[in-house]
Simulated scan of single mutants.
Amino acid sequence: MPKVFRNTYSPLFLLPAAVIYLVIFIVPTVMAFFFSLTRWNLTDWEFIGLENFRMFFEEPSLSIGFKNTFVYAVVTCSLKVVFGLLLGVFLTSKIKTKGYLQSVVFFPTLVSTIAVGIAFSMMMHPTDGLINAALSAIGIQGPDWLGDTRIALLSVAFVDVWKGVGFATVIYIAGILSIPSEYYEALQIDGGGSFRKFWNIILPLSRPATNSVIILAFIGGLRSFDLVWAMTKGGPGFTTDLIASIIYKQYQGGFYGLSTAGNVILFVFVTALAFPLYMYLNRKEVDL
């Protein structure tokens, strides 16, 4: 028997994972595509073809939802990359309390998103909130963070960054620690300082970590729902409505087939944006 076959595992080792993947992902996906073509409830269904998709694209707030979703994903992704990289560099430097600080930075990731949304919606209250109270103590009139149509979406996005930057930081810490020490030694012999260390070594050689953070944060932003719903429920008006919140409102109204079609459209939308980005980043990746 050729050596290549003697060193491979039996396909039976893949069977449990394949069954789980089939049950949890493939079957629900196929069912979602099918029920998006029907008018259904918990007891009955009727095939109506592409009618749900036509009705979904006629949703008055859909254009706002697409725009808000894209803006939200770009803002949260960009800030997580920037702050995650800076915190990763700081927490891998020679500081005595970096173990404690790493725990502090990662802690918000472990907190329930709904709890974070409720807590920050109280803290951002225009009159009784802690944030505006702190600003007024130093003579600054704080805005209505969640009631002002100009800043409501960005306010939620900043909370999302606060909660998710710890996960990005952990990825960056792993990427920075995997850089071979020979690069730092060569820079030290060359007389390079901290800026050159960051610009010439850490920034380019942590690109695999950057790619991972960008993909995960961007997809997470496109699919975001729970934080927005906990803080604003899409308001004021439709100014913080995302595609996912529009879909949820349709579920609440009992339009199950319509909302299922919305989920299919969201899946296609996320794939159409994330897959080309993934391919582009992989072509640019630097090998150590």
Rank of each mutant, 00 (worst) to 15 (best):
F5C: 02
N7M: 11
N7K: 14
L12P: 00
A17Q: 05
A17Y: 10
A18S: 11
I20C: 13
L22R: 00
I24Y: 07
F25H: 10
I26D: 02
P28V: 12
P28Y: 10
M31V: 09
F34K: 07
T38G: 12
D44L: 04
D44R: 08
F47V: 08
I48C: 03
I48N: 01
L50V: 15
L50K: 07
E51S: 14
N52G: 10
F53C: 03
F53P: 02
R54A: 15
M55F: 14
F57R: 05
F57C: 03
E58V: 03
E58G: 07
E59N: 09
G65W: 11
K67F: 06
T69H: 06
F70N: 00
V71I: 15
Y72Q: 05
V74R: 05
L85T: 04
G88F: 09
G88E: 03
F90L: 15
T92F: 09
S93H: 06
S93D: 04
G99Q: 05
L101F: 14
L101R: 01
S103G: 15
V105F: 14
T109A: 12
L110A: 14
L110W: 07
V111F: 05
T113C: 04
V116Y: 11
V116C: 06
G117D: 06
G117V: 09
M122Q: 15
M123A: 14
T127M: 13
D128Q: 15
A133Y: 13
G142W: 01
T149D: 02
L154E: 01
A157L: 10
F158R: 04
F158A: 12
K163Y: 13
V165T: 15
V165S: 15
G166C: 14
T169L: 13
I171Y: 12
L177D: 07
S178W: 15
I179C: 14
P180A: 04
A186Q: 11
Q188M: 14
Q188L: 12
R196F: 11
N200G: 08
I201V: 12
I202D: 13
P204I: 05
S206D: 06
P208F: 09
T210M: 13
I214K: 10
L216H: 14
A217F: 09
I219F: 05
I219E: 10
I219D: 00
G221Q: 08
G221V: 08
S224I: 08
F225M: 03
D226Y: 13
D226V: 07
L227T: 04
V228R: 02
W229F: 06
A230F: 06
M231G: 02
P236K: 01
G237H: 03
T239C: 01
T239I: 00
T240G: 06
A244W: 01
S245F: 02
I246A: 02
I247N: 02
I247D: 00
K249N: 04
Y251A: 01
G254H: 01
G254F: 00
G257P: 10
T260I: 04
V264C: 14
I265T: 10
F267I: 03
A274Y: 08
Y278A: 08
N282K: 15
